[in-house]
């Protein structure tokens, strides 16, 4: 891409804005930390003021003014409608089927939307030990649908994940449904190139939309399997001035909060 065409937003910003646009007002969203949390809060500050954000720390209906660094920052509790014990958030609120959207990140995703956040390399002697699954296996299983947000590269978008931390469509072709999983599984992967959705039947993810500044060929090249491309690939409209301003202000407030010294009262 030439300098003249370079957009005045970053791929990260485009990805976060695109993910935020997929959420709707009054939606009950179980939020993972990082990019999903940024997108969910951006949606809340823009077009979905009544979105219900749930974090696995037990905070329900939280409205943080700054993005939490951890899943249980005090900001999440102080701005929540309810704070419940952790066993309860998974049993009464998630397993019971009250969540519309599970919003997840991961280290790797495969062509069927299975997620790896556990290990790269053999489990017993990993090349890279990742943090692990946390709340994601049951979020992926029980949320009515799942959105995944992840930066794209051939290393992060692989044909088959070495370790399934959370189930997508498993081997596709109805394999997930046959397990009795209650939720419909991953319905979109939002990347820094565009959006992928599962094909009917095979349940393999294909490119359905791209950002204005990337080509289909670039999106295919950034994928570790032979990415199929929908007959009509939408071109996503760039972030509006309003979307960018709100997102940048949210990040600015967050940076300020995270650099603020904490004083122990002792």
């Amino acid at each position: 891409m030439s300098a003249a065409q370079r957009p005045e937003w970053t791929p990260d910003e485009m990805m976060t804005v695109t993910a935020a646009r997929m959420l709707w007002d009054h939606c009950v969203c179980f939020v993972g930390i990082g990019l999903p949390s940024a997108a969910a809060n951006l949606a809340r500050l823009l077009h979905a003021p009544e979105i219900v954000l749930i974090y696995e720390s037990g905070t329900i209906g939280t409205r943080p003014n700054v993005l939490p660094l951890s899943i249980g920052d005090g900001e999440l509790a102080d701005t929540a409608t309810a704070v419940v014990p952790l066993p309860e958030i998974f049993s009464y609120w998630l397993q019971s089927g009250r969540v519309d959207v599970g919003f997840l990140g991961a280290a790797q995703v495969d062509r069927f939307g299975n997620l790896n956040s556990t290990v790269i390399g053999p489990y017993q002697r990993p090349k890279t030990r990742l943090p692990g699954a946390g709340g994601a296996p049951e979020i992926a299983m029980h949320a009515r649908q799942v959105f995944v947000v992840l930066k794209q590269s051939p290393r992060s978008f692989v044909a088959e994940v070495a370790f399934k931390s959370s189930a997508g469509f498993l081997t596709g072709h109805g394999a997930r449904k046959a397990t009795g999983a209650t939720g419909a599984g991953p319905q979109a992967i939002i990347t820094d190139y565009g959006v992928m959705k599962p094909q009917a039947g095979s349940e393999e993810f294909e490119l359905v939309a791209r950002y204005v500044h990337v080509t289909v060929a670039e999106a295919v090249a950034a994928t570790g399997w032979p990415l199929q491309v929908a007959a009509n690939v939408d071109v996503l409209s760039p972030p509006t001035q309003d979307e960018l301003a709100v997102l940048r202000d949210l990040h600015r407030r967050t940076r300020e909060a995270n650099s603020r010294p904490v004083k122990l009262p002792v």
Binding site: S91, P137, K164, S165, S166, A167, T179
Partner: peptide, 13 residues
């Protein structure tokens, strides 16, 4: 007891 781990590799390890 829980509805959990479905389709994951955690029970394998």
């Amino acid at each position: 007891m829980l509805r959990g781990y479905l389709g994951t590799d955690l029970p394998r390890v």
